[in-house]
Amino acid sequence: MPSFKKCFNIRSRDFIHAGEASIAVQQLLKQMHVDSNLIRRIAICGYEGEMNVVMHGGDGLFCVEIDKNKIVLNISDDGQGIKDIAKVMEKGFSTATDEYREMGFGAGMGLPNMEKNADNMIIESENENGTTVQMTFFTKSA
């Protein structure tokens, strides 16, 4: 069966619309009666990924691809990129500014949480050349 794909734009530093793409995806999955626990995991990952683009990345694209056995979130941006991927995956590592910390971000838990909640996560980034985070969720145990 062919898959369904949809993308949303994310704008750098746009906190007013931040989170909307994850919410839209969540609503879609609910209408499809995807298991609610799975939706919760996807919601957490989507939101953290979306916020990272808004805060640390550049303008970006939030894509969801749904097929019979899996749901894939692909979140990419054209921002500053990540130099040391192993480093940013550490719990508590954050480069968030004081301003962001005051807004309640910057615990350095976003990426670790995404990794924990996704069945599979791949980060690709070249310094100065943007970042792509791809997370896969299996809908049925194959």
Binding site: P2, S3, F4, K6, Q31, M32, I66
Partner: peptide, 15 residues
Amino acid sequence: LKQTPLTIEDIKKIE
């Protein structure tokens, strides 16, 4: 959810 679930085909049609 009291509505019947949408299928992948449905959501494609909707979009």
